[in-house]
Design a protein around this nucleic acid. Structure first.
Lengths: 212, 212
DNA sequence: TATTTGAGTGTACGCATGTTCACTCATTTC
DNA sequence: GAAATGAGTGAACATGCGTACACTCAAATA
C-alpha cells in the first residue's frame, strides 16, 4: 500500500504521473496473485493509496488500465530485443544468446511477463485482442532481425516469418515456465534455459533440413 | 437457461445426476465468454435453473466445480488418444493422423478445450495446479504410445519424453488457435492443421538429426 | 402404510462493488 | 494578488455477491 505523498517541489503534471504509475504498479502487483480480470477498481485504488473516485482521473475503466499495462509490458519486451541486437554474440550464436536474453529479461520484468502470459488467454476480450496484436507485431519485428543473420539471410521470407512465429511461441511457453518457477530454485532456471536452447535448435535444424 | 423439470419415472439418484450435469454445462457455457474465475455461484445456478442454495447439494464451492470440469475435460482428451491408437493410419503416419485427430477433437469438445486453455494460466491456484498435473500425466501417457511406434522404438526414453512434451505443448498452442478461431471460417481450420503438421515434422526431423 | 431422507426453495443478512455528486485546496494561469 | 483549474476527497446509492437457516414435499426405506 504505497501512499503517494505530495512532494512540494514537483509540478502538478509530475505528481499526476507519479499517481498514474502507482496505479499501474498496484494493478500489476495485485494481478500476480489473482489475475488482472478478477481484481477490482477499489482494490487497485486502495493499494495505490488513493480513493476510488480518484482512479477515474487517470483511467476510464479497469479495461483501459489493462490496455495500459499491455503497452508497458511490450515496451519492456522491445527494449530487450533492441539490447540483444547490439550484442555481437548474436551473430555467431543466436540460439544461446536468445536463451540468455529471454531468461534474463523475464527475470527482470517478471511481473510484466506474468501479466501478459496470463491475460493473453485469461483476460477480457479487449485485453486479449491487444496482446494478440502486440505479439503478431513482435513476430514481424523479430523476423526482420532474424533475416539479417548469416545462414538465414537467403531463406524465403515466408520461412523466416514461420521460424519467427515458432520462436515467439516458444518464448511465450518458456516465459510461462519462468513465471511459474518457485523463488528459491535457481537450478530450475538453467534447466529452462537448456530446454529453450534445445527447442530453438530443433526449430533451426528442422528448417534447414526442410529446405534441402 | 435450461430448467430441469422433474421426470417422474427417473430415480432420485438419476435426477441428482441430471442437475449436476446441468450445473457443469452451465458453468462451461458461461466460462466461454468471461472465463471461469470471474463467474459467480449465483450466475451458474441461475443458468442451470436452480436456486443458489441448491448448488451446495452438488459442489462445496466454485473451486470444486472447477476441478470437476478439469476432470471432465481430460476424460474427453483421453478418449481422443484411445480412439487414435485404434486407427491403423497412426503407424505409418503419426503426424498427419495426430493433426487430424487434434483438430477434430478440439472441434468436438471445443468448450472443454477452451476451458483448459484458459484456466491453465488464468484460473485459480487450485485449478491451475490440477490442469498442470493432468497435462504432465498426459505427456507420460503419450510418451508410452510414441515409444511403440516404428522409428522411435529405439530412442532413449528421455528423448521420447521430451518429444512427447513438445507435442503436448504444441497441442495446447494449436488448441488455443482452434478455440480462438472465428466460427464462419473453415478455411482457417486447414491452415491450423497444416501448421500443426509442419511443427510436428520439425520436431521429429530435428530430433532424428540430433541423434546422428 | 408410516417414517425418514434429501434435493430443491425462499427469505434474510452483511459485505464489497462501480459510479454519482458536491466538496477542498494547492498549483497554474491571468 | 485574484481567478481558474483539476487531482484527490468522502458520503451516498443501487446492485450482486456468498452463505445461513428454516422450509417443502416427493422418493426411498422400513
Amino acid at each position: 500500500m504505497a501512499v503517494i505523498e505530495p512532494v512540494p517541489s514537483e509540478s502538478r503534471q509530475a505528481q499526476k504521473e507519479r499517481t498514474r504509475q502507482a496505479i499501474l504498479a498496484a494493478a500489476l502487483e495485485l494481478s500476480q496473485t489473482q489475475g488482472f480480470a478478477q481484481i477490482s477498481l477499489r482494490q487497485v485504488s486502495r493499494h495505490a493509496g488513493i480513493v476510488p473516485t480518484a482512479f477515474y482521473r487517470h483511467f476510464e475503466s479497469m479495461d483501459q488500465l489493462g490496455l495500459a499495462l499491455v503497452e508497458q509490458s511490450f515496451s519492456a519486451l522491445r527494449r530487450m530485443i533492441r539490447d540483444a541486437q547490439r550484442d555481437p554474440q548474436v551473430f555467431d550464436n543466436i540460439i544461446d544468446a536468445a536463451a540468455d536474453v529471454l531468461v534474463e529479461a523475464v527475470k527482470q520484468s517478471k511481473a510484466h511477463f506474468a501479466f501478459v502470459a496470463r491475460e493473453r488467454v485469461g483476460g477480457s476480450e479487449e485485453v486479449r485482442r491487444a496482446i494478440k496484436h502486440e505479439l503478431d507485431l513482435f513476430v514481424s519485428e523479430l523476423a526482420v532481425v532474424l533475416a539479417r543473420l548469416p545462414n538465414i539471410e537467403n531463406w524465403s521470407s515466408d520461412d523466416v516469418q514461420m521460424v519467427s512465429r515458432l520462436f515467439v511461441r516458444n518464448m511465450v511457453s518458456n516465459a510461462e515456465e519462468v513465471v511459474e518457477m518457485p523463488d528459491g530454485r535457481p537450478d530450475l532456471e538453467e534447466q529452462i534455459k537448456e530446454g529453450a536452447r534445445r527447442q530453438m535448435r530443433l526449430i533451426v535444424i528442422g528448417f534447414r533440413d526442410w529446405e534441402s
